[in-house]
Amino acid sequence: MENSSLINKLEKYKKEFLEISKSIRKEHFYKKKKYKKFLEKYSVLEKIVLLYEEYKKILLSIKEANYIIKNDSDLEMKELAITEKYKMLNTLRSLEKKLQKLFTFKNKKDTEIVEDYRNAILELRTGTGGDEACLFLEDILRMYTMYFKKIGWKYKIIHAQRGGIKGFKEIILDVNGDQEVYGNLKFESGVHRVQRIPKTESQGRIHTSAITVAVLPQVDDIEININLNDIKKETFRSSGAGGQHVNKTESAVRLTHLPSKIIVECQEERSQHKNFYKAMNVLKSRIYKNIMDKKLKERSIKRKSLVSTGDRSVKIRTYNYPKNRVTDHRIHKSIYDLIGFMNGNIQNMIDYLKNYENNI
């Protein structure tokens, strides 16, 4: 019943947690380059240690139940102990699943370090639907930003390209928070489809449009090494907000990573240096995501799951306005509160996706 190898692993993690806990409390430690990474480790290890303490309590309770079953002469007490024992065994299995999920952060050789606890880069792009797709992208952008505000995350616009009439053709956000930012948003990657009567439709016909969402985990310099000789840098005049400054200086930056053909643009800052820095961050995240996608696809074949593969070509969700319905096609789940959903109440759907992924 008691898994000795698991206990040994948990004891090592507890020891590491206590060591990190002491280190980050030392004066001037926050100035070190690895401070953020230590905090990420601390966050995950804290969760492991808390689950471990709960795990030990359950093991102790099972031992007590076994003693009653073996030695107590009261049949009613024995039956009660047997019932409680089976409940605790189910809890134990559930805790082991949660622990196994958290263990992934230790697998550094597999470049999978605290994945869910990273900040994220969120990319939205129009698909089919012309101007209506641009309007829908703006609606989805509003949905996400309202969600971020509800849970206390911060975001910055890295790049934005306006639509022909209204809305956006493309927008990229830098999302930061003290919870599982990437762990929550990763389920949003894929094609989002809308069914509604466009404002531009005079005859009241329902149209179908689509946008693509891509979620990238933010990475550190030490995790992705980019040779600057492999990058083609171009500058151009910004087309965004900025008054007279827009037409006078070439502050916008376009980076092309020649080996992978990945292209990144940034024009939101007035400084070319700041735009270059932001574009580099996006570029690193995209290269890193390409590496991780290969691993995720291998896993998804084994697990027969498309929930967290990050495949951007998969139609994951439909927003049906006439029926006030949001449907996630991966888990066949519908929520009949489209207005609330579009106002940022998306956590329930994310939780459904998490539970599905954890239980397959």
Rank of each mutant, 00 (worst) to 15 (best):
L216G: 08
V213C: 13
T249P: 00
G183S: 13
A210G: 13
I231Q: 02
Q195F: 04
S238K: 11
N225E: 11
G240A: 11
I224K: 10
Q218A: 14
K186F: 09
T249H: 08
R205E: 00
D220R: 14
F187L: 06
K233D: 00
T256F: 01
S209N: 05
T208P: 01
R196M: 09
G190A: 07
G242T: 05
I224N: 03
N229I: 03
I222D: 13
A210L: 03
I231G: 00
S189G: 10
G242F: 08
S189Y: 03
G183N: 12
Q195I: 06
D221W: 07
E188N: 08
D221F: 14
V191F: 03
S239H: 12
H207G: 01
Q244L: 09
V219T: 15
K248T: 09
V219N: 11
L216N: 07
Q218D: 11
T249Q: 03
D220L: 15
S189L: 11
P259C: 09
I222L: 11
D220G: 13
K232R: 14
S238G: 14
G242E: 04
K232E: 13
L228H: 06
V181M: 12
H192T: 07
Y182I: 06
S238N: 03
R196L: 07
I211E: 03
F236W: 02
E188M: 06
D230L: 09
L216V: 12
G243V: 12
S202F: 01
R237A: 01
G243F: 08
R205M: 02
L258I: 15
E201A: 02
D220C: 11
T235Y: 07
P217R: 14
S189N: 03
V194M: 08
H245R: 07
K199V: 10
D221K: 15
N247S: 07
E188A: 04
Q244E: 04
V191N: 03
G243A: 12
H207Q: 10
S238W: 06
V181T: 14
A210P: 00
E234T: 11
A210H: 03
F187Q: 03
R237M: 07
Q244F: 02
Q179Y: 09
R193I: 10
S238T: 14
H192Q: 05
A210T: 15
I226Y: 04
N184K: 15
E223W: 06
K186V: 12
G183A: 12
H245A: 06
S239W: 02
V215I: 14
V246Y: 03
F187A: 13
E180N: 14
I211G: 00
